[in-house]
């Protein structure tokens, strides 16, 4: 049997039922509670504040320092195949691009120029998620000083861990991926800075 409740007023003010009211000298403010709450709040706000400036859409890249995955595909410009292995001993710049990608077209002249500057380096363009017809038409219009390959099933892209275009992979003479740059290059100087590492 629940004890009959005491007569009730419409307003429940500070009066409590004698049987369950706190000890008379209970602290009026729960200090421990406040400290814990402030710590939790501080942590929460800190975590969210740290996230500012980071790009939530950026995708981690773990192949840095690992051997570049091998591939062999047919060339677009002439009969025959190209495989990564044939550039062994030379640094390789691997650029993933597409005709529907504005920034890729924007950085194209910079890569074209660089391929003339760094004669020792093998420049390879790989077309990502595009049709062969589009690619051929585009290349016929603009011309290109280096090889472009068509990756019909995006197998190379999957192997390299591509997360969008444009992406440029820098591979050293030993066939190790030194880094990947995901933004388009804005100037030849920017490119020069990035390539320095694979030239030694």
């Amino acid at each position: 049997m629940t004890p009959a409740p005491p007569p009730r007023r419409k307003t429940l003010s500070t009066r409590g039922n004698a049987s369950v009211s706190p000890p008379p000298n209970a602290p009026r403010v729960n200090v421990v509670g406040i400290v814990v709450a402030l710590l939790v709040i501080g942590g929460l706000v800190f975590i969210m504040a740290r996230a500012f400036g980071t790009d939530p859409h950026s995708v981690p890249f773990m192949l840095k320092g690992k051997p570049a995955p091998a591939f062999t595909v047919k060339r677009l410009d002439q009969p025959g195949e190209v495989s990564l292995a044939q550039f062994k001993g030379r640094p390789v710049v691997l650029n993933f691009w597409a005709t529907w990608c504005g920034p890729c077209k924007y950085e194209q002249p910079i890569l074209d120029l660089a391929s003339q500057t760094y004669k020792d380096v093998a420049f390879v363009g790989i077309v990502f998620e595009d049709t062969e017809a589009n690619t051929r038409r585009y290349l016929a219009e603009t011309g290109t000083p280096y090889i472009h390959l068509y990756d019909p099933k995006s197998t190379i892209a999957v192997d390299f861990g591509v997360s969008g275009v444009p992406e440029t992979y820098f591979i050293n003479r030993e066939g190790i991926i030194v880094k990947k740059v995901i933004a388009p290059f804005n100037s030849p100087e920017e490119f020069d800075k990035e390539i320095a590492e694979i030239l030694q």
């Binding site: 409740p5 005491p6 009730r8 429940l12 003010s13 500070t14 409590g16 039922n17 369950v20 009211s21 706190p22 209970a26 602290p27 009026r28 403010v29 729960n30 200090v31 509670g33 406040i34 709450a37």
Partner: peptide
Amino acid sequence: ASRGHMLVAE
């Protein structure tokens, strides 16, 4: 925390 003591079960 500061008003919690007023919220006593009856």
